[in-house]
Measured scan of single mutants.
Amino acid sequence: FDIYVVTADYLPLGAEQDAITLREGQYVEVLDAAHPLRWLVRTKPTKSSPSRQGWVSPAYLDRRL
């Protein structure tokens, strides 16, 4: 999967189903980028939180090589 970094805090609107909150600087794996406005991502697990999966706007993501 492609690795992206979150460029700004992402707080989903209440109406968005299956969306997750992301923090600036967080790394995520993009699982599904087929839709231009919503990408399915999975967060990297940390010592304090397990990995999470949900939909985010790709405008908040920047690809890492």
Score class of each variant (00 low, 15 high):
residue 1 F to V: 08
residue 1 F to S: 08
residue 1 F to C: 13
residue 1 F to N: 09
residue 1 F to Y: 14
residue 1 F to K: 08
residue 1 F to E: 07
residue 1 F to Q: 08
residue 1 F to D: 06
residue 2 D to S: 10
residue 2 D to Y: 14
residue 2 D to H: 11
residue 2 D to Q: 12
residue 3 I to M: 09
residue 3 I to H: 05
residue 3 I to N: 04
residue 4 Y to S: 01
residue 4 Y to E: 00
residue 4 Y to K: 01
residue 4 Y to T: 02
residue 4 Y to C: 05
residue 4 Y to M: 05
residue 4 Y to Q: 02
residue 4 Y to W: 13
residue 5 V to M: 09
residue 5 V to K: 07
residue 5 V to S: 03
residue 5 V to W: 07
residue 5 V to E: 05
residue 5 V to C: 07
residue 5 V to N: 02
residue 6 V to E: 00
residue 6 V to S: 02
residue 6 V to L: 04
residue 6 V to I: 05
residue 6 V to K: 00
residue 7 T to W: 05
residue 7 T to S: 07
residue 7 T to F: 04
residue 7 T to E: 02
residue 7 T to V: 14
residue 7 T to I: 15
residue 7 T to N: 11
residue 8 A to N: 07
residue 8 A to C: 10
residue 8 A to W: 05
residue 8 A to Y: 07
residue 8 A to T: 09
residue 9 D to N: 09
residue 9 D to S: 06
residue 9 D to T: 06
residue 9 D to E: 06
residue 9 D to F: 04
residue 9 D to W: 03
residue 10 Y to H: 07
residue 10 Y to W: 10
residue 10 Y to P: 02
residue 10 Y to G: 03
residue 11 L to G: 08
residue 11 L to F: 15
residue 11 L to Y: 15
residue 11 L to R: 11
residue 11 L to K: 12
residue 11 L to V: 15
residue 11 L to P: 14
residue 11 L to M: 12
residue 11 L to Q: 12
residue 11 L to N: 14
residue 11 L to T: 14
residue 12 P to A: 09
residue 12 P to M: 04
residue 12 P to F: 07
residue 12 P to Y: 06
residue 12 P to W: 07
residue 12 P to S: 07
residue 13 L to S: 15
residue 13 L to H: 13
residue 13 L to G: 13
residue 13 L to Q: 12
residue 13 L to E: 14
residue 13 L to R: 11
residue 13 L to N: 14
residue 14 G to K: 11
residue 14 G to V: 12
residue 14 G to H: 13
residue 14 G to L: 13
residue 14 G to Y: 12
residue 15 A to T: 15
residue 15 A to G: 14
residue 15 A to Q: 13
residue 15 A to M: 13
residue 15 A to I: 12
residue 15 A to V: 12
residue 15 A to K: 08
residue 15 A to W: 14
residue 15 A to R: 07
residue 16 E to Q: 09
residue 16 E to G: 11
residue 16 E to A: 09
residue 16 E to D: 13
residue 16 E to Y: 08
residue 16 E to S: 09
residue 17 Q to L: 13
residue 17 Q to C: 10
residue 17 Q to Y: 11
residue 18 D to Q: 07
residue 18 D to F: 09
residue 18 D to S: 07
residue 18 D to T: 06
residue 18 D to P: 06
residue 18 D to V: 04
residue 18 D to C: 10
residue 19 A to G: 14
residue 19 A to I: 06
residue 19 A to V: 08
residue 19 A to K: 07
residue 19 A to N: 09
residue 20 I to P: 04
residue 20 I to D: 03
residue 20 I to C: 04
residue 20 I to M: 08
residue 20 I to E: 03
residue 20 I to L: 12
residue 21 T to C: 14
residue 21 T to W: 15
residue 21 T to A: 13
residue 21 T to E: 14
residue 21 T to I: 13
residue 22 L to T: 01
residue 22 L to D: 00
residue 22 L to R: 01
residue 22 L to M: 04
residue 22 L to K: 00
residue 22 L to P: 00
residue 23 R to I: 10
residue 23 R to F: 14
residue 23 R to A: 08
residue 23 R to E: 10
residue 23 R to C: 11
residue 23 R to S: 09
residue 23 R to G: 04
residue 23 R to K: 13
residue 24 E to T: 13
residue 24 E to Q: 15
residue 24 E to N: 07
residue 24 E to W: 09
residue 24 E to M: 15
residue 24 E to L: 12
residue 24 E to K: 15
residue 24 E to A: 15
residue 25 G to M: 02
residue 25 G to L: 02
residue 25 G to N: 03
residue 25 G to A: 02
residue 25 G to W: 02
residue 25 G to E: 01
residue 26 Q to F: 03
residue 26 Q to Y: 03
residue 26 Q to G: 03
residue 26 Q to R: 03
residue 26 Q to L: 04
residue 26 Q to C: 05
residue 27 Y to D: 04
residue 27 Y to L: 15
residue 27 Y to N: 04
residue 27 Y to T: 09
residue 27 Y to A: 05
residue 27 Y to Q: 09
residue 27 Y to E: 14
residue 28 V to K: 00
residue 28 V to W: 01
residue 28 V to D: 00
residue 28 V to N: 00
residue 28 V to Q: 00
residue 28 V to I: 05
residue 28 V to T: 01
residue 29 E to C: 10
residue 29 E to Y: 14
residue 29 E to M: 11
residue 29 E to Q: 10
residue 29 E to I: 13
residue 29 E to F: 13
residue 30 V to Y: 01
residue 30 V to K: 01
residue 30 V to C: 03
residue 30 V to T: 02
residue 30 V to E: 00
residue 30 V to D: 00
residue 30 V to W: 01
residue 30 V to S: 01
residue 31 L to V: 07
residue 31 L to D: 01
residue 31 L to Y: 02
residue 32 D to N: 11
residue 32 D to S: 08
residue 32 D to A: 05
residue 32 D to E: 07
residue 32 D to I: 08
residue 33 A to L: 05
residue 33 A to H: 08
residue 33 A to F: 09
residue 33 A to N: 14
residue 33 A to E: 05
residue 33 A to S: 14
residue 33 A to I: 05
residue 34 A to D: 09
residue 34 A to G: 11
residue 34 A to N: 13
residue 34 A to W: 07
residue 35 H to Y: 08
residue 35 H to S: 15
residue 35 H to L: 07
residue 35 H to R: 06
residue 35 H to F: 08
residue 35 H to M: 07
residue 36 P to L: 05
residue 36 P to W: 04
residue 36 P to E: 09
residue 36 P to D: 08
residue 36 P to C: 05
residue 37 L to C: 11
residue 37 L to Y: 11
residue 37 L to W: 10
residue 37 L to Q: 10
residue 37 L to D: 15
residue 37 L to S: 11
residue 37 L to A: 10
residue 37 L to H: 13
residue 37 L to F: 11
residue 38 R to N: 04
residue 38 R to D: 01
residue 38 R to F: 08
residue 38 R to H: 06
residue 38 R to W: 10
residue 38 R to A: 06
residue 38 R to Y: 08
residue 38 R to K: 10
residue 39 W to C: 03
residue 39 W to N: 00
residue 39 W to R: 00
residue 39 W to F: 03
residue 39 W to K: 00
residue 40 L to Q: 03
residue 40 L to A: 01
residue 40 L to G: 00
residue 40 L to C: 05
residue 40 L to P: 00
residue 40 L to H: 04
residue 41 V to F: 01
residue 41 V to G: 00
residue 41 V to D: 00
residue 41 V to I: 08
residue 41 V to H: 01
residue 41 V to W: 01
residue 41 V to C: 03
residue 42 R to C: 04
residue 42 R to V: 04
residue 42 R to S: 04
residue 42 R to H: 02
residue 42 R to F: 02
residue 42 R to W: 02
residue 43 T to M: 04
residue 43 T to W: 07
residue 43 T to Q: 02
residue 43 T to I: 08
residue 43 T to A: 04
residue 43 T to G: 01
residue 44 K to V: 15
residue 44 K to L: 15
residue 44 K to R: 14
residue 45 P to Q: 09
residue 45 P to A: 14
residue 45 P to G: 13
residue 46 T to C: 09
residue 46 T to H: 07
residue 46 T to M: 07
residue 46 T to A: 06
residue 46 T to P: 03
residue 47 K to I: 11
residue 47 K to L: 13
residue 47 K to V: 12
residue 47 K to W: 11
residue 47 K to M: 13
residue 47 K to G: 13
residue 47 K to S: 13
residue 48 S to H: 14
residue 48 S to A: 11
residue 48 S to K: 09
residue 48 S to Q: 12
residue 48 S to D: 15
residue 49 S to L: 11
residue 49 S to G: 09
residue 49 S to I: 10
residue 49 S to N: 11
residue 49 S to D: 13
residue 49 S to M: 12
residue 49 S to P: 02
residue 49 S to R: 09
residue 49 S to E: 15
residue 49 S to C: 13
residue 49 S to T: 12
residue 50 P to E: 09
residue 50 P to C: 07
residue 50 P to R: 06
residue 50 P to T: 07
residue 50 P to H: 06
residue 50 P to L: 07
residue 50 P to A: 09
residue 50 P to Q: 07
residue 50 P to D: 08
residue 51 S to R: 06
residue 51 S to A: 12
residue 51 S to M: 10
residue 51 S to L: 06
residue 51 S to W: 07
residue 51 S to D: 03
residue 51 S to P: 09
residue 51 S to I: 09
residue 51 S to T: 09
residue 52 R to G: 05
residue 52 R to H: 09
residue 52 R to I: 15
residue 52 R to P: 02
residue 52 R to C: 07
residue 52 R to V: 15
residue 53 Q to F: 08
residue 53 Q to S: 10
residue 53 Q to C: 11
residue 53 Q to N: 05
residue 53 Q to H: 06
residue 54 G to L: 11
residue 54 G to K: 01
residue 54 G to F: 11
residue 54 G to Y: 10
residue 54 G to C: 06
residue 54 G to S: 03
residue 54 G to R: 02
residue 54 G to E: 04
residue 54 G to T: 05
residue 55 W to Q: 02
residue 55 W to P: 01
residue 55 W to K: 02
residue 55 W to L: 03
residue 55 W to G: 01
residue 55 W to H: 03
residue 55 W to V: 03
residue 55 W to Y: 10
residue 55 W to S: 02
residue 56 V to P: 00
residue 56 V to E: 00
residue 56 V to W: 01
residue 56 V to T: 04
residue 56 V to H: 01
residue 56 V to L: 04
residue 57 S to V: 05
residue 57 S to Q: 05
residue 57 S to E: 08
residue 57 S to K: 05
residue 57 S to W: 03
residue 57 S to P: 15
residue 57 S to A: 07
residue 58 P to F: 02
residue 58 P to W: 03
residue 58 P to A: 06
residue 58 P to G: 02
residue 58 P to V: 05
residue 58 P to R: 05
residue 58 P to Y: 02
residue 58 P to C: 05
residue 59 A to N: 10
residue 59 A to T: 11
residue 59 A to K: 11
residue 59 A to H: 10
residue 59 A to F: 09
residue 60 Y to C: 05
residue 60 Y to I: 10
residue 60 Y to R: 02
residue 60 Y to Q: 03
residue 60 Y to S: 04
residue 60 Y to T: 03
residue 60 Y to D: 03
residue 60 Y to N: 07
residue 60 Y to W: 05
residue 60 Y to A: 05
residue 60 Y to V: 11
residue 60 Y to H: 08
residue 60 Y to E: 02
residue 61 L to M: 03
residue 61 L to H: 01
residue 61 L to S: 00
residue 61 L to Q: 00
residue 61 L to V: 03
residue 62 D to Q: 15
residue 62 D to N: 10
residue 62 D to V: 14
residue 62 D to I: 13
residue 63 R to G: 09
residue 63 R to C: 08
residue 63 R to Y: 13
residue 64 R to V: 15
residue 64 R to H: 14
residue 64 R to E: 11
residue 65 L to N: 12
residue 65 L to K: 10
residue 65 L to P: 14
residue 65 L to S: 13
residue 65 L to D: 14
residue 65 L to T: 14
residue 65 L to R: 09
residue 65 L to A: 13
residue 65 L to W: 14
